[in-house]
Structure formats: C-alpha cells, structure tokens
Amino acid sequence: MKNGEAAKIYRSIFRKDIPDIVQQRFENSSPKVESAFTENDLSKYRKIIDRISDLAAAEYTSRITGTNQLLIKKFQVMIYLGECMPENYNIFINEKKGLVRTLFLFTTIPFNSVYKFTKGFLALKIKI
C-alpha cells in the first residue's frame, strides 16, 4: 500500500492505490495549489494528513464548517486528476439503469453524513 499525501487522499476518495502518474501530477500541482496559503495553513494541513486516518471525514467536516480550505482544494484537485484516468471511467459514468441503487444511495445520505461529520469533527478537535 502506497503512503504519503497523494496516496492517502486518493485512497480516501477512490478506495484504491494511486497510479504513479496521478501521484506525479498531484505533486506537480502542489506548488500552485499551495501558493495562496499561509505557512500556518500549510502546517495545519500537514498535521491533518499525518495524523488523521479518515481524511474523507476531515474533508467533509471542513467543507461543512468552512475551515481547512487547503484540504478541500486538494480533494478537488484529486477528483479532477482521478477523472482523467480511463480506469476510473465506471466510477464517474453510469451506463446502466440503477433507480434502486440511487434510492438506496439517498437513504444512506443522512446516516453517512452524520457519521462522517462527527468522525471528522472529533478527529480535527482531538488530533489537530
């Protein structure tokens, strides 16, 4: 299992190992993405990456509370980079009818959201 910033973010979104090319592109994008942030923002972001295992929960909580903008941006960048890969085609594009799956998805939203928010909130509070 790969480790490091890019690998952790990729896994928390796509639930698999990051391809080398995506890792390289993500790392190349970092100077530009980070340029608008202060040293404080960066050091807080690094702590989040190092100390929190469920980064998706931390990102979701940050999005809801309007904090940790760098983490949110890094997730957005990774989504775009992930979409470029043909191997992720089926993650983004639906080619079959799936009404039942979609309705099931809707029923999971409230539980998943409360769970992820609480988990992210506590992790950010305790570990950062």
């Binding site: 983004f92 639906n94 998805l105």
Partner: peptide, 16 residues
C-alpha cells in the same frame, strides 16, 4: 461538492 455529502458519496452522486 455541489452535493453536500462526503467525498465518497459525492462520487456516487456524480455517477447516479
């Protein structure tokens, strides 16, 4: 992130 849900569910929303 147009959908106010976690990133994994967001991907599913994008798809479905």
């Amino acid at each position: 992130e147009r959908f106010p849900v976690s990133s994994v569910l967001n991907l599913k929303m994008i798809k479905m």
